[in-house]
Amino acid sequence: MTVELFFQTVVNATYAASYMALIAVGFVLIFGVMGVVNFAHGELYMAGAYTVVALYAGVGLPFFVAVAAGLVFVGLLGLLMELALFRPLRDNPLGGLIASIGFLLILQTIAVLGFGVRMKNVPPSTQEKLVLMDGAVLTYQRLYVILAAVILLTALWFFLRKSKFGWALRACAQDREAAVLQGMSINQTARLAMFIGAALAGVAGALTAPLVSPTPFMGHSVIVTAFIIIIVGGLGSLEGAVLVAILYAFVHTFVTTLYDGTLANIVGLLLMLGVLIVKPTGLFGAKERA
């Protein structure tokens, strides 16, 4: 491996880590607060990407307006899921998972009906790029994803640590009954968690749309990645999700560059199986949830 290729791979891995972290943190947040495994999370990402396909590539709105629309739209989809599916099934954790599978199929079909099964090419919003040391190239399009991940995740961290809503969210994630006894509204915190979690996936999809050529089935690989990250990181640990997203992105990108993509996926899954066998609570998980 040449030095140039090495640095380029590092840049690529940083980009991959950014959008994976956005997706995984939303996934963990939803699981932590609601106790539901949101199988449709990959399709929320897909919905974000198609918002950009429709509004930026289709209607011709400015790229960042389309991204903002994607954030809001997917966040609202999250609210819809909470209201229609997860709230009635709150006492039935497996039921929430199954309902989200149903929702996933519906979202996929809507994308197929609206945009067709073929890949959509989204023109890049900018052609500019940064040339880093040793000739490694970082396009602005990828830089946006990295910046968005850093800004949004930092904002989320401060929100969770400093604001009253954040405290309520974390309290609900720790112990739902106790939080209710303290007078916190379960419905309100669940809505908030669902909106934030879904919106993060939507932003990731919207920002990466020009880079990945969206298809209605792009959510599948995303949900696998999200599973690997949250299992290795430990269910319910936001910091763990971010750290493992970075770790996994580097492993995956380097194996893909050096060997091939299928082997990289196998390595990722074996990593997750290994962690499950040796330490099921994950590398950063505090304790096992009931």
Partner: peptide
């Protein structure tokens, strides 16, 4: 044919909500 997954999804959601 293309709407088949949507029907399955709707059936799944309806059955888990109303016929668990």
């Amino acid at each position: 044919d293309e709407m088949r997954p949507m029907f399955y999804g709707a059936i799944l959601i309806i059955s888990i909500l109303f016929l668990p």
